[in-house]
Amino acid sequence: MKEQDIKVFISCVKNYFLEFDHSASLDFLQPIVLSGIGATSISKYILKYTATISISGAYNGAIYVSIDEEMLSNLVRLILDSEEVNREDLVDMAGEIVNTIAGNARRELGADFNISVPFVISGATINIDLPKMIAPIYILPCKWNKQIFYLFLGLDPAL
């Protein structure tokens, strides 16, 4: 991936949070680059909910977003203006975030940047059934209102 591609995703993350929280405090910390895809190296960045989406076409690989329950609950409350949040909402919210960020990236990366339906796991187990990221993996630590979450980009431009 090129630096410009990573900037596209940072812009998509900003766009997402600013739509619902116009005064959002959004920070991006130093990206982490993993040259391999070993579960051990990834697991320390995996939070309560991890939403995944596989990418095909102009790029191959996958995008993950890993988020804690509290942050997802706060987002659901913000969007629905409701105090009632259930587990289905949290799982769905995680999937919707990765779906929107990946879908929005098509504006810059092209209509051949094909995305799948998102798949969400709960817990720290990264198993072999998840969409495969392609190394090197760029992990972008992001903070929304001081709550940290991670965006994983494991993409390779197709030849």
Partner: peptide, 13 residues
Amino acid sequence: DDSVIIRKAIQKY
């Protein structure tokens, strides 16, 4: 929409 959050949001809005 396959997202329950989006369905609820559209319903509310």
